[in-house]
Amino acid sequence: MYMTNIETVPGKTIIDCYGVVSGSTVRAKHVGRDIMAGIKNVFGGELRGYTELLNESRDEAIKRMQAQAAELGANAIINVRFSTSSIAAGAAEIYVYGTAVRVG
């Protein structure tokens, strides 16, 4: 599956377009991580647990978007965009969307 965040897949021609596909997920870390993050907030520095959480969430969202595109018969997703929302405290809510296309 090709994925780009520009309008084309360089070196390929777009044959078919299937419209917008998207993937989203909400994930949380266990409370121990939250407490650690609270402590870390005093000293500063990278919150490894949360970085990890964001990476996991993003990967999961991309995987879901790719699954949706594959179901439609696409082999590439162009113009991929990430976005977030915030409902739950301490949870990562990521969604990713793009246009599913078939290139050749």
């Binding site: 377009c17 419209g19 993937g23 949706q68």
Partner: peptide, 12 residues
């Protein structure tokens, strides 16, 4: 060409 299709399952 535009191919109107909808996914059957909800992966999200």
């Amino acid at each position: 060409a535009y191919q109107p299709r909808l996914p059957k399952t909800n992966v999200n």
